[in-house]
């Protein structure tokens, strides 16, 4: 038996819970080591002191105070705080707030998303000037998923090439300003 094994068995020895063989081995270790014997004896004394400690008593009027606390619990003035209900882990007020925020987010997102047939940006100034709103078809066909509406390119930049070619023949009523433009140092 080494020192560690000895220390592990002290409580079992003092509790008389060692087997006969272990007890013999333990006692032979005690015989061989006076320090070990001293440790066991002083621990037995300490346990004896602990067992002899008087109980700590509550103060006078303990029951009275306890009963008055209980009476306060039972009185109608005291109301048990209601158990807070939660909706998916949120308190109701936060759940409402979160739902509102989520709806607002969806609505704003919907407004920002481009819808089919709506120009994603303002028409180019030139194109807008050359194609007034009156050129747009008056009777638009109904928009449905199976009937994608295609509007004529009047007034809009070509969807094939959105580089806004100003001299494109696709824009019929484009006024020709070329003769009216005079450069400052024009020899004419």
């Amino acid at each position: 038996m080494d020192r560690y094994q000895f220390e592990d068995l002290i409580s079992d020895y003092l509790d008389n819970s060692l087997s006969l063989d272990s007890r013999r081995e333990f006692e032979s270790y005690l015989d061989s080591d006076p320090d070990a014997r001293h440790l066991v004896e002083s621990m037995a004394d300490m346990l004896d002191t602990l067992h002899r400690q008087p109980p700590v008593r509550v103060s006078a009027g303990f029951n009275q105070r306890l009963l008055s606390r209980i009476n306060r619990l039972d009185s109608p003035v005291y109301t048990e705080p209601p158990k807070t209900r939660t909706i998916m882990g949120f308190r109701p007020q936060y759940a409402v707030l979160m739902t509102g925020l989520a709806l607002a987010f969806v609505l704003v997102g919907y407004e920002l998303l481009p819808t089919p047939g709506t120009p994603t940006s303002a028409p180019l100034p030139f194109a807008a000037q050359s194609a007034p709103a009156t050129n747009l078809p008056q009777n638009r066909p109904a928009v449905s998923p199976g009937n994608p509406t295609v509007y004529p390119a009047q007034g809009f930049a070509s969807t094939e090439d959105d580089s806004a070619q100003t001299n494109s023949p696709a824009v019929p009523n484009r006024p020709d300003y070329s003769k009216q433009i005079q450069l400052v140092k024009n020899p004419r």
């Binding site: 400690q53 109980p55 700590v56 008593r57 509550v58 103060s59 303990f62 306890l66």
Partner: peptide, 24 residues
């Protein structure tokens, strides 16, 4: 149980008043 608990809690927290409050 009041004194048994008082002994246990007082030895644990080392404060009479606090121990008594805990027992209560």
């Amino acid at each position: 149980y009041r004194n048994r608990l008082m002994t246990f809690v007082y030895r644990f927290v080392n404060d009479f008043e606090l121990a008594e409050d805990i027992v209560q």
